[in-house]
Amino acid sequence: MVPARRLLAGRWGSPLAAQLAVVAVLLVIWQITAGLGQLGAVPTPVEVGRALLAIFASGAVWEPLGTTLAGWAISLLLAVVVGIVVGFPLGTSRLAYRLSVFTLDFLRTIPALVLVPLVVLLYGSGLESTILLAFLGAVWAVIMQTIYGARDVDPTALQTFMSFRVRRWDTVRFLLVPTALPYIATGVRLAAAICLLVTISAQVVIPAGGLGEQILTAQLGGAVPTMYAYIFLCGALGVGANAAFGKLEAKALAWHPSHRKVAA
């Protein structure tokens, strides 16, 4: 890591400058090739930028953006709450864990989008459908991480708590929760990414409103630069969400003993 960064600093200035340069060069190459008509129906980045400004200026972007964000937030909240509530008992009881491990392994490999045809029949093409699908896609990540977290309790610490006859609730509060929290933070970051992915994907394939449907509508209506603008927004949302929840996870992990040892 460090030598690479130093090398970068020596040759190209700061890494940030090099990163910006790469983005700029790619955009220029795209602009020139698309401008010369070498890419067929692909618009130039200037046209896409203009379309992006236009959907913000006309306010057309807010309603689909709000739908996507609402579906994302609600499904994430549900996945986190249900995941923790289900995961904790499975992590603390060996029997419950062994009973459910195969079932969980099977269920979490099934892509949530498989349920699209059924969910559409049951709930139509509204917000409920995307929320249900995103929830079903993401809840496994939280359950699994909560299980790992609850199973990670230091046996010596647990025995100490038991021999001091610490009350059950205090054991949960001062031992189980602090141990599991970093794992849960990882689960929340994974779930946030999955929820956003499934929400947008479901909005495209159902179609069910939001940014996803706008991409499809723009394509069917021949508004190609607008389609690229909405795709770009989806990517930006994904990067932003991951960065935000990554920071949250780093914060949750910062005080964790394993992390302090690594740092020392």
């Binding site: 790469v22 990067v239 969400a241």
Partner: peptide
């Protein structure tokens, strides 16, 4: 390493872009 660091933001963007959103394209 320096090329990898330089292209990293582009790769991250492509990674977090939901691929289903590229279907219409």
């Amino acid at each position: 390493g320096y090329v990898a660091t330089a292209v990293n933001p582009v790769l991250q963007f492509l990674r977090y872009l939901p691929a289903v959103a590229l279907l219409p394209l």
